[in-house]
């Protein structure tokens, strides 16, 4: 544990002489001794709070507690400038590592540079920062796999239907890597069917927009056979539309519209249990949380880690979801 601090002192010793040296040494030794006495602290910079993020953060906190780490959580409420300032303040507080879910990659890069200069390792969680030169590692869901699993199950249900099959894809936000990757995986899976036509509409993760988009899509294409929701929190909105159109038939009933989604919220769970939805891919938030903290611990120890770490989710269908309730983070 002493080694990194000693290194720092040595480094400064080389560069600074005279009185400045004495002052700096005194300051640093006081910092290092107080830090020694303290727990390791991890800064958790959250983009904003919503259900799955809260669950993910909780998983991180549980994992951190296991290792005896302290977590300092800051929430940016969706504002990139706020997040920028929050990361700077984490740097000033000299946390030992920063876990960040970025609001906007470009805006926080400056703040992350400061962290890098202060030798604080940065780990992006949930949302990858592919262009960042400051992030040591990424931990998050395997969104391509998640989208693919949801698509694969849907494709199986649609197999054997004659003629053109229209499928509605409710995209997440087009500037969100997870949304893009889920769509990529989903499309790849559906391409197994030759007669499928995918109608993609953006929703910006907003249920109200998903609602309107679903209504409109059914007006334009009344024969849509299946719907994929990039987040299963939109499934209740889909149910509203289908109920109004008298198309909300359960799994196994005639005229049932196949509905799958990704996430693992209670909305998706309840809809799958009731049979409105066929199944959902549940993100493994516990694993993601644990992995984030483990990576942070390794980086603090100065070990090198893998750069890209993804955790695939698990698909649960109407038939097996209830028995696996314990593994579904949102189910209650």
């Amino acid at each position: 544990m002493l080694r990194p601090f000693k290194g720092k002192v040595m480094n400064i010793k080389k560069r600074i002489s005279g009185v400045l040296f004495v002052v700096a040494t005194l300051l640093l030794s006081s910092v290092s001794t107080s830090a020694l006495a303290k727990k390791i602290r991890i800064g958790l910079a959250v983009d904003q709070l919503f259900e799955s993020r809260v669950a993910e953060n909780n998983a991180i906190k549980v994992a951190a507690e296991k290792l005896g780490f302290e977590v300092i959580e800051v929430v940016a409420d969706g504002d990139a400038q706020t997040q920028n300032a929050q990361i700077q303040s984490l740097v000033v507080q000299r946390v030992d590592a920063i876990l960040v879910c970025a609001v906007d990659q470009n805006t926080i890069e400056r703040a992350l540079m400061r962290a890098k200069r202060a030798r604080i390792p940065v780990i992006a969680y949930d949302r990858a920062l592919p262009d960042s030169r400051t992030v040591a590692a990424f931990v998050g869901p395997d969104s391509i796999s998640d989208g693919f699993e949801a698509g694969k199950y849907m494709a199986e249900q649609l197999k054997g239907i004659e003629g053109k099959v229209q499928v509605l894809e409710l995209l997440g936000a087009l500037n969100d890597q997870n949304g893009i990757d889920r769509s990529k995986g989903f499309n790849k899976a559906l391409n197994a069917l030759p007669n499928v036509e995918i109608i993609s509409v953006p929703t910006d993760w907003d249920s109200a927009k998903a609602l309107a988009a679903t209504e409109n899509a059914f007006q334009a294409n009344p024969n849509i056979k299946a719907i994929f929701a990039a987040t299963d929190t939109q499934i209740p909105a889909i149910e509203t539309v289908l109920s109004n159109l008298n198309k909300a038939h359960k799994v196994g009933q005639d005229g049932h519209i196949v509905v799958t989604g990704v996430n693992g919220s209670n909305d998706g769970y309840a809809a799958t249990v009731s049979g409105f939805a066929d199944g959902i891919v549940v993100m493994d938030l516990t694993n993601i949380g644990e992995k984030s903290v483990q990576l942070a611990a390794a980086l603090i120890r100065g070990e090198s880690v893998g750069k890209h770490n993804v955790v695939p989710g698990q698909f649960y269908s109407h038939d097996n979801i209830v028995e696996n309730k314990a593994d579904i983070w949102g189910a209650n």
Binding site: D206, A208, P236, T240
Partner: peptide, 15 residues
């Protein structure tokens, strides 16, 4: 009206 239509409260509503 909105939460009745969306089927429940979600924390990004109204942003």
């Amino acid at each position: 009206i909105l939460i009745a239509r969306v089927g429940g409260l979600q924390s990004d509503i109204g942003i």
